[in-house]
Design a protein around this nucleic acid. Sequence first.
DNA 1: CATTTGATGTTCT
DNA 2: GAACATCAAATGC
Length: 220
Amino acid sequence: MNIDEPNAAPGRRSAFGEPPGSAVGLPLPAAFYDRDPALVARQLLGCVLRMVDGHGAVSGRIIETEAYLGPHDAACHAVAGRTARTWHLFGPPGIAYVYFIYGMHWCVNAVTREDGFGSAVLIRALAPLEGVESMRVRRPRARHDAQLCNGPGKLCAALGIDRSYDGASLTGASALTIHAGESITDDLVLVGPRVGISKAVELPLRFRCDSSRFPQPDAD
DNA sequence: CATTTGATGTTCT
DNA sequence: GAACATCAAATGC
């Protein structure tokens, strides 16, 4: 796979037997994540975050991300150093950094750059792809399917991501993975400052795209 | 519609 | 003790 174009057509479809139209590709390799988190955040748009448990696959296309650059970035958890909480944020590229926020929500990041450097990309929103029924069970208060995964806490609830996935590999051979998906051209990408940041520079580090342009999952 | 507020607990100052 | 990479219900138009 060419990590500079992870969603390019060749090799996009995986051999894992996804239903036709799921557009789930190969798991992204660790080298994909061993780069500038802002670039990784942009290129994760259109890729697929996927959880496989005893009940089957639950997944969604990534439609919003946020980059956290490193210890020099006042909004990044790495500013506090490598503590028990941020241990995996400083881990090798391609693992998950999962943390608990506001007393009730989990958030999942893809760790970027080399082992020992604390930077990551927060996965902020998904467009549901597989396992919508499981998502509805896990998020009974969501009134519409469009609201199952349209926030960082919501998508962790919908996929069942919690502390037990902190430090887990995202690159394959595990329950939680990120796969190549649909290519997102620049004209579909909206860029803005990070959400809810009072400190730190207001660089355009948030990336999002509209889910309506993607192939829709098969109706139930 | 938009804006405000309550829930809830960990982390850091 | 305050802040927090949030969510959903309640309130105000």
